[in-house]
């Protein structure tokens, strides 16, 4: 969730205060408060599930990286994937979970690119599981008003 919800909500609080002033032009006030309402609605929808989504996603990514560590043909990458897959989230703050998520995704991108270059069955199978998880991650994050 970037920009982070606390930062955005703080800005929206300031925007609401400014628009409470009596001398704001009605059209400008309507535009700004309408946009603020839209963002507040998105924040409300994302809020409850944010930590749950990240915890589940990070676990799924670690499982893929663990299998990747066993399969990679690159020694340095094997060690990197192995370390990451054995790690944890370091906390349940959204910011902690997102930091761990970003680290895991960087590794997933490297693993994914290696798997695409290979033609052996084990690599093909793991690549298919990577795609499945990527699709599932978009399902978890899908908002009610998502255009697709």
């Amino acid at each position: 969730m970037k920009p982070s919800a606390p930062q955005v909500l703080a800005d929206l609080a300031g925007l609401s205060m400014r628009n409470a002033a009596p001398d704001v032009a009605p059209a400008a006030r309507a535009g700004q408060l309408g946009l603020a309402a839209l963002l507040l609605g998105l924040a409300a929808e994302m809020w409850d599930g944010a930590a749950d989504i990240l915890v589940r996603e990070n676990a799924a990514l670690r499982a893929l990286l663990a299998d990747g560590a066993a399969l990679s043909e690159d020694g340095a990458r094997r060690r990197w994937l192995s370390e990451l897959s054995a790690g944890g989230d370091g906390g349940l703050r959204i910011s902690d979970l997102e930091a761990a998520n970003a680290e895991l995704k960087v590794a997933l991108i490297a693993l994914h690119a290696e798997l695409e270059r290979r033609s052996d069955e084990a690599a093909r199978d793991l690549e298919a599981r990577v795609w499945d998880e990527l699709a599932r991650s978009t399902e978890r994050r899908k908002l009610s008003g998502s255009p697709c």
């Binding site: 969730m1 970037k2 920009p3 955005v8 800005d11 929206l12 925007l15 700004q32 946009l35 603020a36 839209l38 963002l39 998105l42 924040a43 994302m46 990527l134 699709a135 978009t138 994050r141 899908k142 908002l143 008003g145 998502s146 255009p147 697709c148």
Partner: peptide, 19 residues
């Protein structure tokens, strides 16, 4: 705040579109 909207509402949707 208009810059926040695409980041929040469209990044995941764009990923889905690519898939």
């Amino acid at each position: 705040p208009i810059l926040v909207y695409p980041a929040w509402a469209l990044i995941n949707a764009q990923d889905r579109a690519a898939l």
